[in-house]
Design a protein around this nucleic acid. Structure first.
Lengths: 383, 383
DNA sequence: ATCAGTTTCGGGAAAGTTCCCGATAGTTTT
DNA sequence: AAAACTATCGGGAACTTTCCCGAAACTGAT
């Protein structure tokens, strides 16, 4: 019958219920419950196995500590032993398991990058700049895009945080008005740097360009070209860059004694469809503008396409200036006057700033310069 | 003097060397070596602490197993206990540590995506498609770009593998001729799916479009428009898509009885500079082509810019067809005829295929359809 | 031989989870 | 009331690495 594993007797063993489908026994003599071991456990389940520090230790008949020391380049080790270990490690293609390390030190060496989109030129380039310095510093990068959706942004922040990233590089969506999800990040003391679309009400370091002066220059250029009724297709008021560029626009008008017509300032959500709608709206006004300063190049390009489809001549009847110097702006006809910003450098600076934050947190704002690039979309031929 | 921690006597204690700067003692009576405990150990080092499953267990006076069961939604648990645990977890903002889980199960829930670049439309869109299905399946994404450099590609594969990604989505660089780094991935049995720029000599699943037929259609369209001397600015021979599109080009010429002039077929490395150089070269030939089929839209656009700068009229003197339907091709003037491929869908399919691979490996190739989009760059006005 | 000092190595804890399986207590059946 | 069963819980191993600290073995010097 059934033998008790304790006393090896069979006389006192009796059935004692079933647990998880398995017959359970009870030895009256030993006062001991037990089940029979499952036979499946006997099969040698090798499975796929990454080579570990223990494998090396066993093969060499030494302890894992010694192997770890050799691999990590510590000092308390014999030169011959180190060489032996290093050789075997290479031969076995040993790769340290970053998960164990991350668990132990609670750092993953991953930084998260959160952007609204990466269809256009700006964010991909920014990301490449950031990646350049981050990978050099030994960090991997996890990229999320919120698709200009506040909900997705929240979900992404959550996912990134649950992945235990060591830091965050963020550009918020056009519809983000509530910043609680970022406050949660701050509360967990995860370093975070905002770039481009920053968060002024949060005390975090940030990298921006001189949006105000860029916009100012752009509008002043239009005025110098003889345009007088200059509209501004602006971003949402929630974004600081929208407000700064709007201020630049407004002050340039004021400086040159031009009135600020509220009808000519339109805030929109940065979507392509809305850009087209508002471009059409502006051009249908009883007194349409003779120039438009667009919040960014994709917007400016949509305006140009609308204008062209309506037969409005650029730059004769409509001057246009964008912002960012998207490569497409040099390709489109007429080529688009724009404000260049050092996008790649922004990425680098943001990454550098993040690395600094990891060392010692401090609140700074880096502001990068902008530069007017005059092309054909704003050169008014009428003197 | 010094007291032995075992016998609490001082008579038998004597100095016994120094280890790491600390005086070491030996008790002759107990035959026991010891050092004095460092006083720094007394300071309570709380540090920053993520709330764990153990915190919940302690606060509730239950075991970690029970907490785990409640959180994972297992069955062996009382409904009241579960609720209590879930409530406290929410209150403490408990987030499970994915590192511990990953270490245990050796799965990170991260997939790596490796692309040559993401400045243009194609790869970002592809990535977004992939991300759509991957994030729905609970995976995070780690994106690397090789910058069309074989060395960077190797480094990226290594970094991704050392990050223990659960799978890999890859599009190789234009200069990749050696595939050993991918063989290493296969050897470690990490699922991998190639897309667009695939690796025919590796037995891996892949997602491509019907490059041959797309190219065939493109060239046949040019022929139908009356172009007779059609050049092909092709990609490097190492890429299958280059070869397939070249085949389509060649067969279309052959079908319509046009000669294949080797001088009109140029392989290049897909860099912008080379595109310009070869475009200039083609247009400077004693008998220049009257049309060019370009390997992709960015190439076609570079050709158009060169042609325009040389005063060559498109489409009258030069017909151009690209491949991919990059949004810019609709913006540029004249608008660019191109072969549309379902880029977003490619990303989705590749991701789906990867998820399938994780379940049960099987070698398949998904081929997606292409579609000719006729615009103005190829409509020959001469009948 | 005895002692101080040095070099090199090993053992064990810790990080946070999940999972296996045995252990209770309570409930129903015979 | 004994036997059989169910519901619920706890203990411990495992995943891989690093780090602390004690142990052993050695080198010279007395």
């Amino acid at each position: 019958m059934i033998k008790c594993p304790k006393c090896l007797q069979i006389d006192f063993v009796q059935k004692a219920g079933i647990t998880r489908g398995k017959q359970r026994y009870f030895c009256k003599d030993c006062d001991y419950h037990f089940t029979l071991p499952t036979p499946s456990a006997t099969t040698e389940n090798k499975r796929h196995h990454q080579v570990t520090i223990m494998d090396i230790a066993h093969q060499l008949g030494i302890s894992k500590s010694t192997v770890s020391r050799a691999l990590r380049g510590h000092s308390d080790i014999h030169e011959g032993t180190r060489k032996m270990i290093l050789d075997l490690a290479q031969q076995l293609e040993y790769q340290p398991n970053p998960l164990a390390n991350a668990l132990l030190k609670s750092r993953t060496n991953i930084v998260g990058i959160l952007v609204p989109e990466f269809r256009h030129y700006f964010f991909p380039t920014m990301i490449m700049g950031a990646q350049e310095v981050l990978s050099k510093a030994g960090y991997n990068v996890m990229i999320c895009q919120s698709d200009e959706s506040y909900e997705t942004e929240m979900a992404n922040v959550k996912a990134l945080m649950s992945s235990r990233v060591d830091g965050l590089l963020v550009s918020v969506t056009a519809q983000t008005n509530n910043f609680d999800h970022f406050r949660a990040v701050l509360r967990k003391e995860v370093p975070m740097v905002f770039f481009n679309r920053v968060c002024p009400e949060l005390e975090t370091p940030q990298v921006i360009v001189d949006d105000y002066n860029g916009a100012f220059q752009a509008v002043e250029h239009l005025i110098a070209q003889g345009y007088r009724r200059i509209a501004h297709l602006a971003g949402p008021n929630s974004l600081l860059v929208s407000r700064l560029r709007l201020n630049g626009y407004r002050d340039a008008l004021q400086k040159h004694g031009l009135p600020l017509d509220p009808d000519l300032v339109i805030h929109y959500d940065l979507s392509e469809e809305k850009a087209r709608i508002y471009a059409n709206y502006l051009l249908s006004l009883p007194q349409p503008p003779d120039a438009i300063f667009a919040i960014n190049d994709p917007t400016a390009i949509e305006i140009m396409l609308v204008a062209k489809s309506r037969g409005v001549k650029i730059p004769q009847e409509l001057g246009i200036v964008g912002f960012s110097n998207d490569p497409v702006s040099a390709i489109i006809e007429p080529s688009l006057t724009t404000i260049e910003q050092p996008v790649w450098e922004m990425g680098r600076q943001a990454a550098k700033l993040l690395l600094e934050q990891m060392e010692h947190p401090h609140n700074v704002t880096h502001t990068l310069p902008t530069k007017l690039i005059v092309r054909n979309s704003s050169v008014n031929l009428r003197p």
